[in-house]
């Protein structure tokens, strides 16, 4: 930028003015992040090291209890692992459902493209909670879905849909599908159609062209979509709460319950662990998929 300012005499005050403008522009967002991101994170990290014997009434004292982490992991290893497993399943189902959908919208929808995109976004017009509650009704023991499945003997007479692992993963998949479809669409839509023609011209049949040209070129969308699905799914507790039972408890449910019960140090230690686990997984994944080389 500075090389583009050619006037040396008047340059100094002007450059200072520009620099000041840049800082002023950064200020509101910076303050916001400081107040609502940095302060809470520091507070969370601090809380995870408080004396575990404290309470809200008596107050917590900072005792640097690293042992909180060991205890929390020992007590909550199962819901922790379950969260990551459900998030993985959700991401896989979202990818399986979302990729063909995004592909169809990008390449085959023609003039219906915008309508279909609007339909993908449409669920966002109602709240996450209400949508998940509707799933609870839809899958309920007396609902028509269960009745219908029982009638055709897909489901046994005492079979249920609600309060199962399948219900929780289905709910998660439903809720996070748009986060998979939109980045996939954006990345597929950008692909130059002539590259696909070139694949065909160079002896690659439709499937081989997909495998060797379209799929690699859509990898940035796959990576973005899987991250946008996996990260919130791993931390979600609404779906497990509404569609599952304590057996489907995810780590989010425990963190929420512990915070509500005033067990701040354990809840904080679990939150920090989840965050760290996700950051490590994501870094490893992005490094492995090597998307930075793609244009």
């Amino acid at each position: 930028m500075s090389a583009l300012v050619p006037v040396p005499a008047a340059g100094k005050p002007e450059r200072q003015g520009r620099r000041l403008t840049a800082y002023l522009l950064l200020l509101p967002g910076g303050l916001w992040l400081l107040l609502f991101f940095v302060v809470p994170i520091v507070s969370l990290l601090a809380a995870s090291l408080y004396d575990p014997d404290g309470s809200i009434e008596a107050g917590f004292s900072m005792t640097w209890s690293w042992h909180n982490y060991v205890d929390a992991l020992a007590d909550y290893a199962r819901p922790f692992g379950r969260s990551l497993w459900y998030a993985l399943l959700t991401t896989a189902f979202c990818l399986l459902l979302g990729y063909p959908l995004a592909y169809a919208i990008a390449f085959k929808a023609g003039r219906w493209k915008n309508v279909m995109l609007a339909l993908v976004i449409a669920p966002f017009f109602t709240s996450f909670l209400i949508r998940t509650l509707s799933w609870k009704m839809l899958l309920s023991d007396n609902g028509f879905v269960v009745d219908a499945l029982k009638a055709v003997h897909i489901l046994g007479s005492d079979g249920r849909l609600l309060a199962t692992t399948a219900a929780v993963v289905t709910g998660l998949t439903y809720n996070f599908l748009p986060f998979m479809v939109l980045p996939l669409y954006a990345s597929l839509e950008k692909i130059d159609h002539r590259l696909i023609e070139a694949g065909g011209d160079l002896f690659a049949g439709p499937f081989t062209t997909f495998r060797t040209v379209t799929l690699p070129l859509s990898m940035p969308g796959v990576v973005a979509g899987t991250l946008l699905t996996f990260i919130p799914a791993a931390g979600d507790y609404i779906n497990a709460q509404l569609l599952g039972t304590p057996k489907q408890r995810m780590i989010g449910n425990d963190i929420q319950r512990l915070f509500a019960a005033g067990a701040y140090p354990t809840a904080a230690a679990l939150s920090v662990t989840l965050m760290a686990a996700i950051v490590v997984l994501v870094l490893f994944y992005v490094r492995r998929s090597g998307t930075e080389e793609l244009v």
Binding site: R194, L195, G200, D201, L202, F203, G205
Partner: peptide
């Protein structure tokens, strides 16, 4: 992909 014919595309269409 079954034709013994190949094309040099306008703007080349090289695989990025």
């Amino acid at each position: 992909y079954k034709r013994p014919v190949n094309t040099v595309f306008q703007n080349y269409a090289l695989f990025p």
